[in-house]
Write a protein that binds this DNA or RNA. Structure first.
Lengths: 204, 204
DNA sequence: CGTTAAACCGACTGCCTGGTCGGTTTCAGA
DNA sequence: TCTGAAACCGACCAGGCAGTCGGTTTAACG
């Protein structure tokens, strides 16, 4: 195998295993040895590929988390004509993966933001950047929705975008240990009410 | 001073300092020595009053966090006639204290829930119990609002309650490092839109 | 004043963690 | 087959952690 390929493959394996453990156990609560044990690798291998635990985490955020947020929360909305409808479907999908205990990357983001808040501003910055990308894309979609007659023209797109993001982060927090299925159902239901107040009034 | 009083006073001092540090630095990231240094006390004093770090934290949750959530997020709504209006004012107040970097206990709750999720189910349980109390009180207020004609009768009170809690938890997460003032303003604005969709239609 | 128990002290232990480093294995290319 | 660099190993270090314990201080009370 090409050396460079091998390098990439090993690094990627470490990143995937690292994200998995950082997500489930927390960054400060996960040791590098935990990750290495899972992969049957040694300290030497780790520090050959990464400078430090922090750098390692940042590489995970930029490679895995960012990409996943993009493909799962941003792309599915970009092409759709009706943004409110698209957002509803997209978040419902995300909550479904959450229900099956798979990683939903919106929550990964929120999780790490709280964990690093006040402890590592550098990392918070990286995470916030990803949030910003999500937000900007939501705003764009909403603005387009206004032109296309799917969204009431007088609404504040920034406000709506952050309200959507907030409610999503929050419902995932509530799902911690709670009745995920019920919460998801109720959440989508209430989001529909909210979205209805953002839709143009249909003149019968 | 009465011995018992002294005991209570010292324990309380430890709890207050502990909460402060656990909140700002995280539980796993805060050592008992950190807390003791702040109070000029010793290991001996700590383990004289508390059995373990975990027991200590639980006592903080039950004494300080629970009481504060009650007095700041539940009581202000209980007496009010119009629940939607009362909730709006209450959460706006909470966000204002957050803006001034004081502890808002809704966020304390959400913070710890994420930190202990998957790491210490026992503690998650205590935190979830507090959430439940908050939720139940919101539901009660909303139901009362229905009888009193402030809330549309067909709405699902449980769904609305968890949507409110979720959006609040989430907006606090977004405030991490973000533009808190702007976020708060937008949040309250959007909450009004949402609440309007829950209010009975005024027949002009 | 002397007693006694509660309150507090701080050195110590055993364990874990991030990070280092000299050495070993692997394997593509000559 | 030989070689050299990339990839990997794992013992080791320094520092931090929760929790222990024998001893000291404090102050209420007889």
């Amino acid at each position: 195998m090409d050396k460079n390929l091998k390098r990439m493959a090993t690094m990627h394996r470490m990143q995937v295993a690292g994200l998995e453990l950082f997500y489930t156990q927390g960054y400060y609560n996960t040791s590098i040895d935990d990750i290495l044990k899972k992969l049957n690798l040694s300290k030497g291998a780790f520090y050959y590929h990464f400078q430090s635990k922090e750098e390692f985490f940042i590489s995970i955020v930029q490679n895995l988390v960012f990409r996943k947020v993009y493909s799962m929360l941003i792309e599915p909305i970009e092409g759709e004509p009706n943004p409110l409808r698209a957002i509803e479907i997209c978040l419902d999908d995300a909550l479904q993966t959450a229900e099956h205990n798979e990683m939903d990357f919106g929550f990964v983001l929120a999780n790490f933001m709280t964990e690093f808040n006040g402890r590592n501003e550098k990392i918070v910055q990286y995470l916030r950047d990803i949030c910003k990308v999500w937000e900007v894309n939501l705003v764009t979609a909403l603005q387009r929705g206004k032109s296309d007659g799917f969204v009431e023209r007088h609404i504040d797109s920034e406000g709506v975008a952050s309200y959507i993001m907030a409610s999503y982060f929050g419902i995932r927090t509530l799902m911690v240990g709670g009745n995920a299925r019920m919460l998801r159902y109720n959440y989508i239901q209430q989001m529909r009410f909210y979205f209805r107040s953002l839709s143009p009034v249909v003149i019968a």
